[in-house]
Design a protein around this nucleic acid. Structure first.
Lengths: 218, 218
DNA sequence: ACCTGAACACCGTTCAAGT
DNA sequence: ACCTGAACACCGTTCAAGT
């Protein structure tokens, strides 16, 4: 096989093998898609990529680090989908599209979504990249809130608290529907998304987030 | 050791061993509490209960069935906590207490809560008991909604859809907070619960769930 | 600088065999 | 009727050794 012309590349060049790290992440994604979260094992990923079981340890400290990389990619894609959706309209319309896009992403990539919020990554203090990327999701929601505030479609108030409530609604709806907990209710997923979005937007409009709150006896 | 006096018992008598099934569920709960969801393995449970690794298979078809039994117990306890909370007040007060109790339960038993909604039980079509018990959670929320409607604190509307939205909010908030996604926001969990409950109650009051909805282009 | 082979300590699950 | 011991096919992870 002919060697490719080797020009001086400014980017860090691929590994001798041909960027095994990226190949492993790709393999992980495929296993996830076809076999769900349980199928994502380090040995299976190595097999799928055609390397020995020990090879991944050159690129990832352990299984959790690989899962973290997959999740990070997922958060990036989710963020991109949210951003694109928000740009489809102003204020209320943008917020609604954001919600629809969020739920659609999760239902299009259920295993990936589960990994992103799975117990193995529950405390990601040791994966700062992932933590930063996942935090951007909240930022996107917060932007949607602030757009609503600027359009005077909801009142002023703590936009971070409002964003947390909105994200909770979306994440909860996604999880419960993926778990089948909303089946047999006589309601389609679309209807549930609409109702949830309606509740959140009306709820945000009424009152206003209290900046300081008396503790609810825990 | 003296044999206990063996009187005729009307209930189905414990197993020869002394109700290993219950002992296994108890052991599973303890492993969960001390080691999290990852620690819940069939072999570890057997060891903890002092039986051979194969013994659990006399009582559970597989690991999933044991997890299902643990989850079922969790849903029962959660349901009881929700019911008790609702009785602490009418309408709005009851609903608020319900929300507080829900989040408190999850944060008091984080590993158990995760198991209840974990991927291994995601489709529980084959565990009808669990499915029924978990469905009761939605029913409790729905009762809270209907109490609000009867007290005219929210308008009429599809109470199932409203319950699904409320549960989504609670479940989402629990999951995100357990995952640490609401840390460093300058907001305590109590504040987030208050804000979320406020949003939901205001949101339910405004408008009304449409019984039939045009599809949101999926 | 990157990868392999072999090993260790774990899993879930099955099955003959024990009492 | 209930439990054990041994086995099989998997795991994650480590480490000397190869190129």
């Amino acid at each position: 096989m002919p060697k490719p012309p080797r020009r001086k590349t400014p980017e860090p060049p691929p590994y001798h093998h041909g960027d095994l790290r990226a190949a492993l992440i790709r393999s992980a994604g495929e296993l996830l898609r076809h076999g769900g979260p349980e199928a994502l094992t380090l040995r299976a990923v190595a097999r799928h990529a055609g390397v020995s079981q020990a090879a991944p340890y050159r690129h990832f400290a352990d299984l959790r680090a690989l899962i973290g990389a997959v999740a990070e990619q997922g958060f990036q894609r989710l963020g991109a989908a949210m951003m694109a959706a928000m740009q489809q309209g102003d204020g209320r319309k943008g917020f609604k599209e954001l919600a629809i896009a969020y739920v659609a992403f999760a239902h299009r990539h259920p295993a990936e979504y589960r990994i992103m919020f799975g117990p193995s990554l529950a405390s990601d203090d040791d994966l700062p990249e992932l933590r930063k990327t996942s935090r951007e999701v909240l930022t996107f929601v917060q932007r949607g809130i602030e757009a609503l505030q600027q359009a005077r479609q909801i009142g002023p108030g703590n936009s971070a608290a409002m964003a947390a409530a909105s994200w909770s609604m979306l994440h909860g709806l996604v999880m419960l529907s993926l778990d089948g907990q909303t089946d047999n209710l006589g309601l389609s997923l679309d209807e549930l998304v609409q109702e949830s979005t309606r509740v959140v937007m009306f709820g945000l409009a009424g009152g206003g987030a209290a900046p300081s709150v008396k503790g609810t006896e825990r």
